[in-house]
Design a protein around this nucleic acid. Structure first.
Lengths: 199, 199
DNA sequence: CAATATACTGACTACTTAGTAAGTAGTCAA
DNA sequence: TTGACTACTTACTAAGTAGTCAGTATATTG
C-alpha cells in the first residue's frame, strides 16, 4: 500500500479512535516510519487530510451499498449494515458520523460539506431499504421511512459511544432490539406481557 | 459567579461545543479575563478539570431528576428530558455522553469512571421512567425497559450530531418520532397505511 | 496585630503543533 | 542524457500547549 493510502487509513483510524484534534502529523509520520514533511507532501494541510478521510469513507460506503445489492433479503441487508458498526464496537472506534459530528466545528466548510454528503448517502440508502422493506412486508414501522432511517442511524452511531463508556455488550442490546423493532417475524404483542420483565 | 464556577461552566461549553482536545487553558483564561495560571490554580491539570466538568453535569442531572418528580405525568417527564437535548440542538452543542464518548481515550481512568457513572445515572432514570410508564399504560414498547432506555438515549445523543451535520430540523424529526413510538395515544396501526407515505 | 489562607499575576520552561523551504535520490520519457 | 516528475528528507519557524514557581494583594481569623 502506498504512503498516501496508508496515511488515509491511519488518519481515519486516529480520527475515529481519538478525534481529529488528538493526533498530529508527527503521530502519522512516526507510525508510518516517514518524516512529518512527507505527510505534508501528500496532504498539505490537516484540513485537506480531513477532507480526504471523509471522501474515502464515502467511497467505502458506496462500494458497500453496491456489494450489498447481491443480497436479495432486505433484513440481511440491514444486518450487514449493522455489522459495520459491530466491527467498530469491537475495536473501540466510533463511526465517522459520530467522530466528525463531535469535531464538526474544527473542520472547514468544505470538509463539513463532505461530511454532510456522506451522512446524506447513508440516510438515503437506509431510507430506500426501509421503504422497500415495508412495501414487501420485510419491515414494520410507523412514520416516514426517512425518519426511521434517522432513528436507526442515531441508534447505531451513539451505540458505539455506549460501547466505549458502558462496555461492548451494550452494543449488542441496542442493535439487537433495533433490528427486532422493525422485523415483524414472530413478534410478541407490543404491550409486553410483563412476565419476564427485567430492568 | 466565582472564577471556579465560571471555568467549569465555560469548560463544559467548550468541551461539548469543540471537544476536550480543542480548547486550552489559554482559551479559558482569555474568555474569563484572567491569566492561564489562575485556571491552573483552580484545576491543576486538564484532567482534573475534565473530571470536575463531568461531575458537575452529573450533579445537574440529579437536580433535574429531582425537579421532574414534581411532574406526575410520565409522558411529560419524558418530554422534559427530551427538552434538555432540544436546547443543545439549538445552540449547536452535543451532550456530554456524545462529547465524552468521542474523546473517551483522551480522558484518565478516573474521568472515564465518572463518565460511566453519569451515563449509568441517566440510563437508570430513563429505565425507571419507562418501566413505571409501561406498567401504568403511559408507554408502550417491546423488550426490557433498560434496552429501550439505551435506544432512546442513543437516539437523543446522536440526534445532536445530526442537528449539526444535517440541520436543526432533523432533531425535531428524530425526537418527535421517538416520543410517538412509545406513547400509545391515538396511534395508527403499526403497519402503515402507506397513503401519505413519503421518503 | 500578626499569621494564615485565598485567589490570583508575571515570568518561565519544556514540549508539541501545523506548516514551509530547500535539497535529494530515483524513475521515466523524449 | 537531459529534464521533468514523484516521493520523499533535513532543517527550520512561529505559535500554541500544559504545567511550574515565586511572588503579591486582599481578606479572614486567632
Amino acid at each position: 500500500m502506498s504512503t498516501h493510502d496508508e496515511i488515509l487509513r491511519l488518519g481515519d483510524d486516529l480520527m475515529r479512535m481519538h478525534g481529529f484534534n488528538a493526533f498530529s502529523y508527527y503521530h502519522l509520520a512516526d507510525a508510518l516510519k516517514v518524516r512529518p514533511a512527507a505527510v505534508h507532501y501528500h496532504f498539505p494541510t490537516k484540513d485537506a487530510l480531513a477532507l480526504s478521510i471523509v471522501n474515502r469513507s464515502r467511497e467505502a460506503f458506496h462500494s458497500f451499498s453496491e456489494r450489498v445489492l447481491l443480497e436479495a433479503d432486505l433484513q440481511i441487508r440491514l444486518k450487514s449494515f449493522v455489522r459495520i458498526f459491530a466491527e467498530n464496537a469491537d475495536t473501540g472506534k466510533i463511526c465517522l458520523m459520530g467522530a466528525a459530528g463531535a469535531d464538526f466545528y474544527s473542520l472547514s466548510e468544505d470538509t463539513r460539506g463532505a461530511v454532510r454528503l456522506f451522512v446524506l448517502d447513508i440516510i438515503a440508502w437506509l431510507t430506500d431499504l426501509l421503504d422497500e422493506g415495508r412495501q414487501c412486508g420485510d419491515f414494520t414501522f410507523d412514520g416516514l421511512p426517512r425518519t426511521r432511517a434517522l432513528l436507526i442511524a442515531t441508534n447505531l452511531a451513539a451505540s458505539l459511544h455506549m460501547a466505549r463508556i458502558l462496555g461492548k455488550k451494550e452494543f449488542q442490546s441496542i442493535s439487537g432490539q433495533l433490528v427486532k423493532d422493525i422485523c415483524p417475524s414472530k413478534k410478541s404483542t407490543k404491550r409486553s406481557s410483563s412476565k419476564v420483565r427485567g430492568k
